[in-house]
């Protein structure tokens, strides 16, 4: 290759390289937030935060089987929305890359079971004491909790693969869900359902929890404090007026219509509202840790105070 030609290449290549670096440095400033499910009202406040643009937030949707917590602990994203159990399991199994909870959206866990109303059931105990199918994602902590609580249940456990197709096609069918989404989908299809909160069975961990890596919290605490403040503001505004964020989510998740978005965001209000939105207590983290140790999901108890922080 003659030297003139190589100079020419270099003169094109170097500016390109510089540009790439600058662009990626700029891109770094955007905070990537991974969700563990589709854009639904349970994440409304995060989308509201994105709309308010106080922090440059980029939200990545998740789905069934998305390894959201691993994406966070291994540094693929800056922040993630996961459940409290996922944080504990991750910290126990991957102690080199600890994560920490900053903001818990739901004070009452919205996880439910639902079944057809005409079965006349009044509780989860009724479901488990009658023959039928229960569709729940295998490996879920509360499933193990319930199996231990009701060792002589008469149901057949089957995998849950999303949606409400099973409920439509089977009579004696109970499925997992979020109070704020699946029951509304069933209603839309004209199926009358009874819903039972898992929390009423004594299993009520924080869920839809914002988490970051502990190392990041150490190195840029002030910046992360700003994130949390912006997100708290986002949630406050979303609870007052969910419409703008609902419209945004409606464009991303077209499987839910505007009416359902509206209903869902109203339904979840009472599960979220608290004196200080998103704040957590050591007592509840500790109680979850004890439960997980009893269920042998955690081999050893973790320190509750290391798992979360109420940034002020």
């Amino acid at each position: 290759m003659n030297s003139h030609f190589s100079k020419k290449i270099i003169s094109i290549f170097i500016p390109m390289l510089c540009f790439t670096f600058v662009a990626s440095a700029e891109g770094k400033k955007t905070i990537t937030l991974a969700l563990n499910w589709k854009a639904e009202p349970q994440f409304g406040g995060f989308y509201q935060t994105q709309l308010e643009k106080k922090i440059p937030l980029k939200i990545l949707e998740g789905g069934s089987g998305t390894p959201t917590i691993q994406m966070l602990s291994f540094g693929k994203v800056d922040a993630a929305v996961v459940s409290a159990e996922e944080i504990l399991i991750s910290n126990a199994q991957n102690p080199q890359n600890p994560v920490v909870a900053l903001f818990a959206v739901f004070q009452t866990n919205p996880q439910i079971w639902m079944t057809r109303q005409d079965r006349g059931f009044h509780s989860i105990a009724d479901v488990l004491n009658h023959p039928g199918l229960v569709a729940a994602q295998s490996g879920l902590t509360y499933v193990q909790f319930l199996k231990k609580k009701y060792p002589h249940s008469k149901v057949q456990w089957v995998p849950y693969s999303g949606g409400i197709a099973g409920l439509i096609n089977e009579k004696n069918y109970t499925q997992q869900g979020f109070l704020t989404s699946e029951p509304l989908l069933a209603e839309e299809k004209g199926i009358k359902v009874s819903t039972f909160l898992i929390a009423d069975e004594g299993f009520n961990p924080y869920t839809t929890v914002l988490a970051v890596r502990k190392s990041d919290l150490k190195s840029k605490r002030q910046e992360i404090l700003k994130w949390v403040e912006a997100i708290r503001k986002g949630w406050e505004d979303y609870l007052k007026n969910p419409l703008p964020a609902n419209q945004l989510m409606g464009q991303i998740n077209t499987s839910m219509d505007a009416k359902t978005f509206q209903k869902s965001s109203e339904l979840q209000k009472k599960l979220i509202e608290a004196k200080s939105l998103g704040s957590m207590t050591e007592k509840r983290w500790d109680s979850l840790i004890q439960t997980l140790v009893r269920l042998k999901i955690l081999a050893h108890p973790l320190k509750a105070q290391d798992q979360f922080i109420n940034l002020k």
């Binding site: 089987g65 917590i69 399991i89 994602q137 295998s138 490996g139 879920l140 089957v158 995998p159």
Partner: peptide, 20 residues
């Protein structure tokens, strides 16, 4: 097995949820 249960597929499904 991911959707219908049983076998090694079911164990994989469960293990993924539990980060095992």
């Amino acid at each position: 097995e991911f959707v219908a249960g049983g076998g090694l597929g079911s164990i994989i499904d469960e293990a993924r949820t539990q980060q095992r």
